[in-house]
């Protein structure tokens, strides 16, 4: 029985699996049920200061290789988020990472400031959603100086809460973006957000199925890219990383940790293996550790021999 517990930016996770933002994370009851399904921690669906409407359906389609979504970050705003966070905090079974989103620099700063006093462990700045580009333009995570600026401004108002940035894979050089965030004072990273956007056309009607036409790609197909980018960011910054993108099995989770991730985000795999994918992945990691003589899982972080 290996020790799977991991400390990340001051919070204790019983195992490295974390619910990725955007998958099932709408209510406190769901966060709790995901922890009951074995997750070491929770990331909320992105929280906005004010109500934000998502896209119309269809919003999510899937094949055995990939999932594509354009849900469009729907959220009722701060008041609802506060109620859910307070509700979760009554019995808080695992650390809570609050993902926040905004359309402008000011909106990010405003929501981050509100989060400062709430009972959350880590603040995740979602500056990389590809599904609100039509509304707000190129995400901040795609321009180094914008990424740095948003981190700097958020850090000024976020008090003692650790701040991590959700990075986009849709960039020429993710190291450049990560370094800019590091210079801005970020405490860690979560990567990768969805790839693309991509396009899926129903050939009988010649119409894209997603109402938003294009959507971010996740799922097993994007895992090699996630592993590579996690390694790039780990090498470039040495800051602690939540590695996510197509992680479906314990072997996948071990692999992305070897690339440099401290925690492992799981999202689309809720579809591929059910809600208890968290328990399955943690059990599989434990078995691998036992077979390979690893006593403490944290030993493997960043140990890939490149």
């Amino acid at each position: 029985m290996a020790n799977l517990s991991i400390k990340y930016l001051g919070a204790e996770f019983k195992n490295p699996t974390v619910l990725a933002s955007g998958v099932t994370g709408v209510t406190a009851a769901t966060w709790r049920s995901v922890v009951n399904s074995g997750a070491g921690g929770i990331t909320t669906k992105s929280i906005w200061l004010n109500e934000h409407k998502g896209h119309k359906n269809p919003t999510i389609i899937t094949t055995e290789h990939w999932m594509m979504n354009a849900v469009g970050l729907p959220d009722a705003g701060l008041e609802k988020a506060q109620q859910e966070i307070d509700e979760y905090n009554k019995t808080k079974p695992a650390p809570l990472i609050a993902s926040v989103a905004g359309g402008t620099m000011d909106e990010f700063v405003a929501i981050a400031e509100k989060m400062k006093d709430l009972p959350i462990d880590i603040l995740e700045i979602n500056i990389s959603c590809p599904n609100v580009e039509g509304e707000f333009g190129l995400p901040f995570a795609c321009v180094a100086k914008d990424a740095r600026k948003v981190v700097e401004e958020v850090k000024k108002v976020s008090g003692k809460k650790p701040v991590i940035v959700k990075l986009s894979p849709n960039v020429t050089d993710i190291k450049e973006i990560a370094n800019a965030c590091a210079e801005g004072g970020v405490d860690g990273f979560c990567l990768i957000n969805t790839l693309g956007p991509g396009l899926y056309i129903n050939i009988e009607t010649r119409i894209p199925v997603l109402a938003n036409k294009v959507g971010g790609i996740s799922g097993p197909a994007i895992k090699p890219l996630a592993v590579k980018m996690v390694h790039d960011v780990y090498k470039a910054t040495k800051l602690p990383i939540i590695g996510t993108g197509g992680i479906t099995t314990g072997r996948d989770a071990i692999e992305i940790m070897m690339a440099g991730a401290t925690l492992v985000g799981i999202g689309s795999a809720v579809y591929y293996r059910g809600l208890d994918v968290f328990r399955k992945v943690a059990n599989e990691m434990n078995e691998w550790c036992d077979l390979n003589g690893v006593k403490d899982l944290s030993e493997i972080i960043g140990t890939v021999k490149m």
Binding site: V23, K45, M67, L275
Partner: peptide, 19 residues
């Protein structure tokens, strides 16, 4: 509902978070 297959989290019920 959005997805119909347990991912979007829109159709959950309190307090058990049943989808």
């Amino acid at each position: 509902m959005k997805c119909g297959f347990g991912v979007c989290g829109q159709c959950v019920m309190d307090p058990l978070g049943i989808r």
